[in-house]
Design a protein around this nucleic acid. Structure first.
Lengths: 214, 214
DNA sequence: GATAAATCGATAAAATTTTATCGAACTGAA
DNA sequence: TTCAGTTCGATAAAATTTTATCGATTTATC
């Protein structure tokens, strides 16, 4: 269990390992890097390196204890304790994220939900009551929320971003398919599902191209 | 405009550039790599390299023509023509993706929607009628759909994955927060929003740590 | 025209990430 | 107990990606 910071790529892969471990039948107690690599389509050395960096060492011939590994991964992902965050927009994307079953495993704690649509306000989602966006600053400051997710329709995303920045939220994940502008001190990260699909698109094209060489 | 394949990282950044270009006021005709880099927080050499690989060359002192660049980027992203895909699950994630305004710019064409929930079936979403999942194989084979997105609740995701594989869909994007297993010939890619947030979590922690050195 | 400022493209260097190779450790069976 | 097979960890090599540097090109201004 190393204390240094993980490489960004490793950090991205840890959730995959965790996800795989969850799918194993209960009776499985030991997992080898070889097996994980095979299931995930990664190189086994890569997996071993990731696990070594993130968790304790494995035992030759046996591999890793499944439960210990799970705990180690979760602990690594939530190092420093849970981080509170809020979601703006609760119907489509926002609702899905709010109900994500493993936020805790990633060191995330959903602390508040906001929506601009009056129909959504007051509703209970994922155990929380939806607030009107007017109260964003008040609530964020009160709860010291510094991480925000924008899951609003395109036309409301920029103003929501401004509001977040104003409320002291310096790190924002934008799920709406628009580029958002924010002050330099505020970092906005774009997470466009369609862009993700685009990567797969290429892979598909290549598969097809490989299948018929001429 | 190069014909070789782009690096994976470049391919991932192209949508960002496109998104930024869309936010420019109409009167802006020329954009420099410097400006794009500044707006997106990237190195300017990096942007220039990406653009050089993806599109035509720019003109010194002027930069790139905004409209030409937009068209070039879109063309690059949709090289080989649009790829048909289908979405399974239409309420949360699925609905959001279906109504994504720039699928075409990424070379994607939404061809069919499916849902297991009777209430969703028959509804019109993004101009398409939602089919029952029973008809998945039939429709996919008929329309030669080879790319599928799973946006169903966790408990239905694996069976949907199996159904897709059976229907000849070899490339799958899974938006549900579970690891899915598929035959070797089928590639499943996980797109976990919460994992994405996890990356930001770390950045936030570091910001805070930097702010108070002790 | 000549000059200065800004941007580009290309090459080279640096950093990061992945892959390969090796010997050592451990388990289970002969 | 010994031996074979598997997995691990560490080191080194390869590949990929980012960053830096330089000269060349173009435009605007003097």
């Amino acid at each position: 269990m190393d204390n240094r910071s993980l490489s960004i790529h490793t950090l991205r892969r840890l959730p995959l390992y965790l996800g795989y471990l969850r799918t194993l039948p209960d009776e499985v107690e030991q997992v080898s890097a070889t097996r994980i690599a095979g299931a995930l389509g990664l190189g086994e050395v890569l997996v071993r390196k990731d696990l070594a960096a993130a968790c304790g060492k494995g035992r030759p011939r046996v591999g890793y204890n499944r439960d210990q590994l799970t705990v180690s991964l979760q602990r690594r992902l939530s190092r420093g304790g849970p981080v509170d965050f809020c979601i703006l927009g609760t119907d489509h994307l926002g609702g899905a994220l709010a109900e994500h079953p493993h936020l805790g495993a990633y060191g995330l704690s959903l602390s508040a939900l906001f929506d601009s649509c009056p129909e959504q306000v007051g509703r209970r989602v994922a155990g929380l009551t939806v607030w009107p966006i007017d109260r964003l600053e008040e609530v964020c400051r009160e709860r010291d929320i510094r991480l925000g997710v924008i899951a609003l329709p395109v036309d409301q995303a920029q103003s929501a971003c401004d509001a977040l920045a104003l409320a002291g939220v310096r790190t924002i994940l934008n799920l709406a398919p628009v580029h958002l502008t924010a002050p330099d001190a505020t970092e906005v990260r774009q997470a466009d599902m369609a862009a993700h699909l685009g990567i797969l698109r290429r892979r598909l094209r290549r598969q097809i191209a490989d299948a018929k060489p001429f």
